[in-house]
Protein backbone atom coordinates (compact mmCIF):
# COMPACT_ATOMS: atom_id res chain seq x y z
CA UNK A 1 0.00 0.00 0.00
CA UNK A 2 2.80 2.38 0.95
CA UNK A 3 4.65 1.52 -2.23
CA UNK A 4 1.53 2.26 -4.26
CA UNK A 5 1.11 5.70 -2.69
CA UNK A 6 4.76 6.54 -3.22
CA UNK A 7 4.66 5.38 -6.82
CA UNK A 8 1.52 7.40 -7.55
CA UNK A 9 3.07 10.50 -6.00
CA UNK A 10 6.17 10.07 -8.16
CA UNK A 11 4.03 9.58 -11.26
CA UNK A 12 2.12 12.79 -10.55
CA UNK A 13 5.23 14.97 -10.68
CA UNK A 14 5.44 15.02 -14.51
CA UNK A 15 1.72 15.79 -14.64
CA UNK A 16 2.10 18.74 -12.32
CA UNK A 17 5.14 20.00 -14.21
CA UNK A 18 3.17 19.76 -17.44
CA UNK A 19 0.36 21.78 -15.88
CA UNK A 20 2.75 24.49 -14.73
CA UNK A 21 4.49 24.53 -18.09
CA UNK A 22 1.26 24.73 -20.06
CA UNK A 23 -0.34 27.44 -17.99
CA UNK A 24 2.87 29.46 -17.87
CA UNK A 25 3.36 29.62 -21.61
CA UNK A 26 -0.33 29.94 -22.38
CA UNK A 27 -0.48 33.03 -20.23
CA UNK A 28 2.69 34.54 -21.68
CA UNK A 29 1.73 34.15 -25.29
CA UNK A 30 -1.62 35.75 -24.70
CA UNK A 31 -2.04 39.31 -25.88
CA UNK A 32 -2.35 41.91 -23.14
CA UNK A 33 -0.43 42.62 -19.99
CA UNK A 34 -1.28 42.88 -16.31
CA UNK A 35 -0.46 46.55 -16.37
CA UNK A 36 -2.97 47.46 -19.07
CA UNK A 37 -5.28 49.62 -17.03
CA UNK A 38 -7.97 52.04 -18.02
CA UNK A 39 -5.44 54.33 -19.66
CA UNK A 40 -2.10 53.34 -21.16
CA UNK A 41 0.97 53.66 -18.93
CA UNK A 42 3.88 55.77 -20.08
CA UNK A 43 6.73 53.63 -21.43
CA UNK A 44 9.12 54.37 -18.57
CA UNK A 45 6.76 53.29 -15.80
CA UNK A 46 5.98 50.27 -17.89
CA UNK A 47 9.64 49.27 -18.19
CA UNK A 48 10.19 49.88 -14.51
CA UNK A 49 7.25 47.70 -13.61
CA UNK A 50 8.40 44.95 -15.97
CA UNK A 51 11.86 45.08 -14.43
CA UNK A 52 10.51 45.03 -10.90
CA UNK A 53 8.59 41.84 -11.57
CA UNK A 54 11.29 40.27 -13.74
CA UNK A 55 9.13 40.40 -16.87
CA UNK A 56 12.02 41.88 -18.91
CA UNK A 57 14.06 38.69 -18.57
CA UNK A 58 14.09 36.01 -21.30
CA UNK A 59 11.05 33.79 -20.90
CA UNK A 60 13.09 30.68 -20.11
CA UNK A 61 14.76 32.49 -17.21
CA UNK A 62 11.35 33.58 -15.93
CA UNK A 63 10.09 30.02 -16.10
CA UNK A 64 13.16 28.72 -14.29
CA UNK A 65 12.72 31.29 -11.55
CA UNK A 66 9.08 30.42 -11.18
CA UNK A 67 9.78 26.70 -10.83
CA UNK A 68 12.52 27.40 -8.29
CA UNK A 69 10.12 29.52 -6.27
CA UNK A 70 7.44 26.87 -6.51
CA UNK A 71 9.79 24.24 -5.15
CA UNK A 72 10.18 26.47 -2.08
CA UNK A 73 6.44 26.87 -1.72
CA UNK A 74 6.53 30.43 -3.09
CA UNK A 75 3.89 31.28 -5.68
CA UNK A 76 5.33 34.75 -6.26
CA UNK A 77 3.71 38.19 -5.98
CA UNK A 78 0.31 39.05 -7.35
CA UNK A 79 0.61 41.53 -10.19
CA UNK A 80 -2.82 43.06 -9.73
CA UNK A 81 -3.45 42.92 -6.00
CA UNK A 82 -0.14 44.69 -5.58
CA UNK A 83 0.19 44.48 -1.83
CA UNK A 84 -0.40 40.74 -1.62
CA UNK A 85 1.58 37.68 -2.57
CA UNK A 86 -0.27 34.90 -4.37
CA UNK A 87 0.24 32.75 -1.28
CA UNK A 88 -1.68 35.32 0.81
CA UNK A 89 -4.57 35.32 -1.66
CA UNK A 90 -4.68 31.55 -1.75
CA UNK A 91 -4.78 31.39 2.02
CA UNK A 92 -7.75 33.73 2.17
CA UNK A 93 -9.69 32.07 -0.66
CA UNK A 94 -8.88 28.38 -0.32
CA UNK A 95 -10.56 27.71 3.06
CA UNK A 96 -13.88 29.01 1.71
CA UNK A 97 -13.74 26.91 -1.48
CA UNK A 98 -12.45 23.87 0.37
CA UNK A 99 -15.13 24.04 3.08
CA UNK A 100 -17.96 24.29 0.58
CA UNK A 101 -16.47 21.61 -1.68
CA UNK A 102 -15.81 19.16 1.15
CA UNK A 103 -19.27 19.58 2.68
CA UNK A 104 -20.87 19.13 -0.74
CA UNK A 105 -18.80 16.02 -1.46
CA UNK A 106 -19.69 14.40 1.87
CA UNK A 107 -23.38 15.21 1.48
CA UNK A 108 -23.42 14.00 -2.11
CA UNK A 109 -21.74 10.69 -1.27
CA UNK A 110 -23.85 9.98 1.81
CA UNK A 111 -27.14 11.04 0.23
CA UNK A 112 -26.39 9.45 -3.14
CA UNK A 113 -25.43 6.05 -1.72
CA UNK A 114 -28.46 6.06 0.58
CA UNK A 115 -30.82 6.88 -2.29
CA UNK A 116 -29.17 4.28 -4.53
CA UNK A 117 -29.66 1.64 -1.82
CA UNK A 118 -33.27 2.62 -1.24
CA UNK A 119 -33.95 2.27 -4.96
CA UNK A 120 -32.33 -1.17 -5.10
CA UNK A 121 -34.43 -2.69 -2.32
CA UNK A 122 -37.32 -3.12 -4.74
CA UNK A 123 -35.76 -3.14 -8.21
CA UNK A 124 -38.00 -1.62 -10.89
CA UNK A 125 -40.66 -0.84 -8.30
CA UNK A 126 -42.46 2.51 -8.30
CA UNK A 127 -40.03 3.97 -5.73
CA UNK A 128 -37.05 2.88 -7.83
CA UNK A 129 -38.41 4.42 -11.04
CA UNK A 130 -39.33 7.70 -9.39
CA UNK A 131 -36.07 8.04 -7.52
CA UNK A 132 -34.01 7.34 -10.62
CA UNK A 133 -35.96 9.81 -12.75
CA UNK A 134 -35.48 12.37 -9.98
CA UNK A 135 -31.76 11.68 -9.90
CA UNK A 136 -31.46 12.08 -13.67
CA UNK A 137 -33.22 15.41 -13.23
CA UNK A 138 -30.70 16.44 -10.58
CA UNK A 139 -27.69 15.55 -12.72
CA UNK A 140 -29.15 17.57 -15.57
CA UNK A 141 -29.78 20.71 -13.50
CA UNK A 142 -26.79 23.03 -13.85
CA UNK A 143 -25.71 24.68 -10.60
CA UNK A 144 -26.29 28.09 -12.12
CA UNK A 145 -29.96 27.21 -12.52
CA UNK A 146 -30.47 25.51 -9.16
CA UNK A 147 -28.45 28.18 -7.31
CA UNK A 148 -30.67 31.11 -8.29
CA UNK A 149 -33.83 29.04 -7.85
CA UNK A 150 -32.81 27.96 -4.35
CA UNK A 151 -32.00 31.56 -3.49
CA UNK A 152 -35.32 32.69 -4.92
CA UNK A 153 -37.34 30.18 -2.90
CA UNK A 154 -35.53 29.96 0.42
CA UNK A 155 -34.14 33.48 0.67
CA UNK A 156 -36.49 35.79 -1.20
CA UNK A 157 -39.86 34.08 -0.88
CA UNK A 158 -39.54 32.22 2.40
CA UNK A 159 -36.90 34.47 3.94
CA UNK A 160 -35.33 31.61 5.89
CA UNK A 161 -31.78 32.07 4.71
CA UNK A 162 -29.61 34.94 3.45
CA UNK A 163 -29.53 35.45 -0.32
CA UNK A 164 -25.77 35.68 -0.60
CA UNK A 165 -22.57 36.61 1.17
CA UNK A 166 -20.23 34.80 3.46
CA UNK A 167 -20.85 36.17 6.98
CA UNK A 168 -17.49 34.79 8.08
CA UNK A 169 -18.66 31.26 7.47
CA UNK A 170 -21.75 31.38 9.70
CA UNK A 171 -23.79 28.21 9.02
CA UNK A 172 -26.82 30.01 7.56
CA UNK A 173 -24.63 31.45 4.80
CA UNK A 174 -23.19 28.08 3.90
CA UNK A 175 -26.43 26.10 3.49
CA UNK A 176 -27.61 27.28 0.07
CA UNK A 177 -24.25 27.23 -1.76
CA UNK A 178 -23.47 23.76 -0.42
CA UNK A 179 -26.92 22.50 -1.36
CA UNK A 180 -26.70 23.87 -4.90
CA UNK A 181 -23.29 22.31 -5.32
CA UNK A 182 -24.36 18.96 -3.84
CA UNK A 183 -27.43 18.18 -5.92
CA UNK A 184 -25.95 17.21 -9.33
CA UNK A 185 -23.15 15.15 -7.78
CA UNK A 186 -25.62 13.43 -5.48
CA UNK A 187 -27.74 12.47 -8.47
CA UNK A 188 -24.72 10.98 -10.22
CA UNK A 189 -23.62 9.04 -7.12
CA UNK A 190 -27.13 7.65 -6.61
CA UNK A 191 -27.31 6.48 -10.22
CA UNK A 192 -23.88 4.88 -10.05
CA UNK A 193 -24.75 3.11 -6.80
CA UNK A 194 -28.00 1.84 -8.25
CA UNK A 195 -26.33 0.64 -11.46
CA UNK A 196 -23.44 -0.95 -9.56
CA UNK A 197 -25.79 -2.83 -7.24
CA UNK A 198 -28.01 -3.97 -10.10
CA UNK A 199 -24.98 -5.38 -11.87
CA UNK A 200 -23.53 -7.08 -8.78
CA UNK A 201 -26.86 -8.65 -7.82
CA UNK A 202 -26.81 -10.83 -10.93
CA UNK A 203 -23.35 -12.22 -10.25
CA UNK A 204 -22.41 -15.73 -9.26
CA UNK A 205 -21.21 -14.97 -5.75
CA UNK A 206 -24.57 -13.39 -4.90
CA UNK A 207 -26.39 -16.52 -6.05
CA UNK A 208 -23.96 -18.61 -4.02
CA UNK A 209 -24.67 -16.48 -0.94
CA UNK A 210 -28.41 -16.82 -1.55
CA UNK A 211 -27.87 -20.55 -1.67
CA UNK A 212 -26.44 -20.29 1.85
CA UNK A 213 -29.70 -18.71 2.96
CA UNK A 214 -28.54 -15.10 3.05
CA UNK A 215 -31.11 -12.63 1.84
CA UNK A 216 -32.50 -9.12 2.08
CA UNK A 217 -30.51 -6.35 3.70
CA UNK A 218 -27.76 -8.69 4.93
CA UNK A 219 -27.13 -9.94 1.40
CA UNK A 220 -26.79 -6.39 0.10
CA UNK A 221 -24.71 -5.00 2.95
CA UNK A 222 -22.33 -7.92 3.31
CA UNK A 223 -21.94 -9.32 -0.18
CA UNK A 224 -23.07 -6.70 -2.68
CA UNK A 225 -22.42 -3.20 -1.38
CA UNK A 226 -18.64 -3.13 -1.29
CA UNK A 227 -18.04 -4.34 -4.85
CA UNK A 228 -20.95 -2.20 -6.03
CA UNK A 229 -19.32 0.93 -4.65
CA UNK A 230 -16.24 0.54 -6.85
CA UNK A 231 -17.62 2.67 -9.71
CA UNK A 232 -18.74 5.27 -7.16
CA UNK A 233 -15.19 5.49 -5.80
CA UNK A 234 -13.67 5.82 -9.27
CA UNK A 235 -16.13 8.65 -9.85
CA UNK A 236 -15.38 10.32 -6.51
CA UNK A 237 -11.89 11.53 -7.45
CA UNK A 238 -12.96 13.47 -10.55
CA UNK A 239 -16.15 14.50 -8.74
CA UNK A 240 -14.16 16.12 -5.95
CA UNK A 241 -12.17 18.01 -8.54
CA UNK A 242 -15.39 19.00 -10.29
CA UNK A 243 -16.90 20.28 -7.06
CA UNK A 244 -13.82 22.37 -6.39
CA UNK A 245 -13.78 23.94 -9.84
CA UNK A 246 -17.56 24.00 -10.05
CA UNK A 247 -17.46 26.22 -6.99
CA UNK A 248 -16.42 29.04 -9.34
CA UNK A 249 -20.03 29.50 -10.39
CA UNK A 250 -21.43 29.03 -6.91
CA UNK A 251 -19.01 31.63 -5.59
CA UNK A 252 -20.18 34.04 -8.27
CA UNK A 253 -23.88 33.44 -7.61
CA UNK A 254 -23.66 33.65 -3.84
CA UNK A 255 -20.90 36.29 -3.76
CA UNK A 256 -18.50 34.16 -1.73
CA UNK A 257 -14.85 35.19 -1.28
CA UNK A 258 -13.52 31.87 -2.59
CA UNK A 259 -10.55 30.97 -4.74
CA UNK A 260 -12.57 30.59 -7.94
CA UNK A 261 -13.43 34.26 -8.07
CA UNK A 262 -9.78 35.23 -7.66
CA UNK A 263 -9.03 32.91 -10.54
CA UNK A 264 -11.56 34.40 -12.94
CA UNK A 265 -10.52 37.91 -11.98
CA UNK A 266 -6.87 36.97 -12.30
CA UNK A 267 -7.38 35.46 -15.72
CA UNK A 268 -9.24 38.54 -16.97
CA UNK A 269 -6.50 40.85 -15.61
CA UNK A 270 -3.53 38.79 -16.87
CA UNK A 271 -2.33 38.29 -13.31
CA UNK A 272 0.09 35.53 -14.34
CA UNK A 273 1.33 34.37 -10.94
CA UNK A 274 -2.16 34.29 -9.44
CA UNK A 275 -3.66 32.27 -12.29
CA UNK A 276 -0.77 29.84 -12.38
CA UNK A 277 -0.76 29.51 -8.63
CA UNK A 278 -4.43 28.57 -8.57
CA UNK A 279 -4.14 26.16 -11.52
CA UNK A 280 -1.09 24.45 -10.00
CA UNK A 281 -2.74 24.20 -6.60
CA UNK A 282 -5.90 22.73 -8.07
CA UNK A 283 -3.97 20.24 -10.18
CA UNK A 284 -2.13 19.14 -7.03
CA UNK A 285 -5.43 18.81 -5.17
CA UNK A 286 -6.91 16.75 -8.01
CA UNK A 287 -3.89 14.44 -7.94
CA UNK A 288 -4.40 14.12 -4.18
CA UNK A 289 -8.11 13.32 -4.52
CA UNK A 290 -7.42 10.67 -7.12
CA UNK A 291 -4.80 9.17 -4.85
CA UNK A 292 -7.26 8.99 -1.96
CA UNK A 293 -9.81 7.41 -4.29
CA UNK A 294 -7.22 4.82 -5.33
CA UNK A 295 -6.45 3.92 -1.72
CA UNK A 296 -10.16 3.57 -0.98
CA UNK A 297 -10.51 1.43 -4.09
CA UNK A 298 -7.82 -0.89 -2.78
CA UNK A 299 -9.69 -1.21 0.51
CA UNK A 300 -12.92 -2.10 -1.28
CA UNK A 301 -11.38 -4.55 -3.71
CA UNK A 302 -8.57 -6.77 -2.41
CA UNK A 303 -7.76 -7.83 -5.97
CA UNK A 304 -6.01 -4.56 -6.82
CA UNK A 305 -3.87 -4.88 -3.69
CA UNK A 306 -2.20 -7.79 -5.45
Amino acid sequence: MFGLILRRLMASIPTLLAVVFLSFFLMRFAPGSPFDGERPLDPETRLALDAAYGLDQPIIVQFGRYITGLAHGDFGPSLVYRDFTVTDLIWTGLPVSLLIGALALLLAMAGGIAIGLAATLRPNGPLDCRLMLGMTLLTALPTFVTGPILALVFALWLGWLPVAGWGNGAPVYVVLPVLALTLPTMGAVAKLTRAGLAQIMTQDHIRAAQGRGISGWRLISRHALRPALLPVISYAGPAAAGLLTGAVVIETIFALPGLGRYFVQGALNRDYPLVMGVVTLYAALIVLFNLIADVLYGWLDPRVRG
Binding site: V279, I286, V287
Partner: peptide, 15 residues
Protein backbone atom coordinates in the same frame (compact mmCIF):
# COMPACT_ATOMS: atom_id res chain seq x y z
CA UNK B 1 -7.66 14.27 -16.78
CA UNK B 2 -5.74 15.66 -13.82
CA UNK B 3 -5.95 19.17 -15.25
CA UNK B 4 -8.53 21.37 -13.60
CA UNK B 5 -10.23 21.29 -16.95
CA UNK B 6 -12.77 24.04 -16.40
CA UNK B 7 -9.87 26.34 -15.57
CA UNK B 8 -8.07 25.38 -18.72
CA UNK B 9 -11.10 26.23 -20.81
CA UNK B 10 -11.42 29.53 -18.98
CA UNK B 11 -7.74 30.20 -19.61
CA UNK B 12 -8.15 29.45 -23.31
CA UNK B 13 -11.12 31.80 -23.52
CA UNK B 14 -9.26 34.58 -21.76
CA UNK B 15 -6.02 34.12 -23.64
Amino acid sequence: YALPFMFVVILLMVV
